[in-house]
């Protein structure tokens, strides 16, 4: 558990920050890799000993951070949607519709897509929850979380090992 804790803490923090619109707009795609880097820093601090972190372990910690961030973000997003009966998908629905019209698809396909998305929007507005929206978000968040978390984990491992390289060489 102690090994997973840094990933859980940083994943939770990233998941919470992802649903805050101001932070989300400011940090954009850098939040998840940063969470991965901080997970490595926390891991080193919590272990109490300065040791070279193997890249495999760093990558795994980063990956777990991304997974936790995706789970927490989807969870908080669902809770907020359930309470407010609205979310970014509902708010930006007109833009989504416009974006679909710009796509080089046949009219039939565009209408089908818009119909499907309208159904999801109606479910969120009516019940505060849509199974298809939540599961789609979860899968999409997990894919992005794993990739970006992994990147952060690798970068964090390199930073920490480079920072402590003087310590290793003096031993």
């Amino acid at each position: 558990m102690k090994k997973v804790l840094p990933a859980l803490v940083c994943g939770f923090a990233a998941g919470v920050l992802q649903v805050v619109p101001f932070i989300r707009g400011l940090s954009c795609c850098l939040l998840l890799p940063l969470a991965g880097v901080f997970a490595i820093v926390l891991y080193q601090k919590s272990s109490g000993v300065i040791e070279k972190i193997p890249y495999g372990k760093g990558a795994m910690l980063g990956l777990l951070t991304g997974v936790f961030a995706a789970l927490f973000s989807t969870f908080f997003d669902s809770i907020i949607s359930f309470i407010t009966h609205s979310n970014i998908f509902v708010e930006e629905f007109v833009s989504i519709q416009k974006a679909f019209n710009d796509l080089p698809f046949s009219e039939e396909m565009k209408n089908e897509l818009i119909k499907m998305y309208s159904m999801i929007r109606d479910e969120i507005v009516r019940d505060g929850f849509s199974f298809w929206y939540t599961s789609g978000m979860l899968v999409s968040n997990l894919i992005a979380g794993i990739l970006f978390g992994l990147l952060g984990g690798l970068l964090g491992t390199y930073f920490m090992n480079a920072k402590n390289s003087n310590y290793y060489s003096s031993r």
Binding site: Q18, P21, R24, G25, C28, C29, L32, A70, S73, I88, E92, M137, S140, N141, A144, G145, F148
Partner: peptide, 8 residues
Amino acid sequence: MFGFVCHQ
């Protein structure tokens, strides 16, 4: 899609 890694 991609909403997790960009404000879009």
